[in-house]
Write a protein that binds this DNA or RNA. Structure first.
Lengths: 231, 231
DNA sequence: TAGTGGTCTAGACCACGCG
DNA sequence: GCGTGGTCTAGACCACTAC
């Protein structure tokens, strides 16, 4: 039993309401139950805190938070598919082509000018409703092959499972702006309506940037969730 | 030397460009330099990663990220004042009164109906420009006294330093919507322009909710920054 | 292969809440 | 005062990068 497995086990128990009084067992009890040291327990707990599932109070215990099943979780693993496990996610490819990196793309990917870059635009649906437009760029030196077929599904699963790459972290910039006519049409909104934009720069575990994207979310359907540590 | 102090020292050195090649010393070197164990070093490093200042690559080292001095940092300590150290922050109190908690407020604060709640509206300026409108609520059972004078300054410093309370964490919900006529006037924008809204629920370290707020940011002036861990 | 960060063990003491 | 989470030490081994 390692901390990753333990995280998954406790998370499952929380989601199935298997703990009473919205409270987790004490660290000592978890150590006994799973035969691991305190380091391991606390590591698992830390993951759950970062995912916004629980909070800790020194001297008192660990408490389960109320579920937020209407939000995209910003700072943890979950993509759209994981954040809304009960909803159907579909993706329609609007455009997919390869382009050599100009100055701007080279800077964005910290790569050499001329490096081939996949440019992909997708319209993504949640339970049949247009949810977001994704303008995405992939470094072809790292992601050697992309197709319409792959892009209709989960690209990240393809990268992890089929290409065997390990994804590390993403820098995210969130902002708000007016949307244009074309975007409004795609999202069933009006021109100059608000749009929620997230710019991601995504790194592999080895520190290289493989993906950059701008995602425009339908403001009527989207809430983001995050936990700030203020200690 | 504890991990908190170490965090501050390394952070200062990063901001002053005292490390070469955008790279931190190895963990072993930091252990030697500051006479602490690896736990302590890694704890400090973890804080810096969470603040979005550095990233780690196993087998390679710890790298300093490019500065983002135009963003509000979502998931760490910084308020407006800390995020923009070079800019002047001013606050104008638009309204301050006490109200007994109705069902909605009681639910929001997980307190009893009838509990006195401070309701505060502030317009906040950044270098003289109207930056956000803050609609804030404080549980008077926990924050017994608020005044216009206090609200013109930093309320959180007052709570920490003068009331001696320890702030724990905040749940944040981010969304985007059209702003109304009154809000547009205050922010020098147009009615139905986009607005970036953040709803905060803020907890003390002991787990009680002392503050809830809705902040409307000027979409032309505001970007948020966050780091997502995808491992 | 050497060096670096990632995980884990075993144990100690501290700070805070709660009764 | 007891039980709980928070910090820290000391040491081992593993996984990955870089050469």
């Amino acid at each position: 039993m390692n901390s990753k497995q333990l995280t998954a086990i406790i998370k499952e128990k929380i989601l199935n309401n298997e703990y009473e009084h919205m409270k987790l067992p004490t660290e000592d009890m978890l150590m006994d139950e799973y035969g691991v040291t305190r380091y391991c327990v606390r590591k698992a707990i830390q993951n759950l805190v970062n995912h916004g599932l629980i909070y800790q109070v020194q001297g008192s215990g660990m408490y389960i938070k109320e579920k937020r099943d209407d939000c995209l979780i910003l700072s943890s693993t979950e993509g759209i598919v994981m954040s809304f496990p009960n909803k159907k996610v579909e993706s329609k490819v609007l455009n997919l082509h390869i382009q050599e990196a100009d100055d701007e793309l080279a800077k964005e990917f910290k790569c050499e000018k001329g490096t081939p870059i996949y440019k992909l635009t997708r319209l993504r649906y949640l339970d049949g409703e247009p949810f977001c437009i994704e303008y995405s760029r992939y470094n072809k030196k790292i992601i050697p092959y992309l197709s319409n077929e792959i892009a209709e599904g989960s690209i990240y699963e393809y990268i992890r499972n089929d290409l065997g790459l390990s994804i590390g972290f993403a820098d995210k910039i969130i902002l708000c702006d007016k949307i244009n006519h074309e975007q409004a049409e795609l999202l069933n909104l009006e021109e100059n309506d608000p749009g929620l934009f997230i710019n991601d720069t995504v790194y592999l575990s080895n520190g290289t940037i493989f993906n950059a994207s701008t995602v425009l979310y339908n403001y009527k359907l989207t809430k983001l969730f995050d936990v700030a540590n203020l200690k």
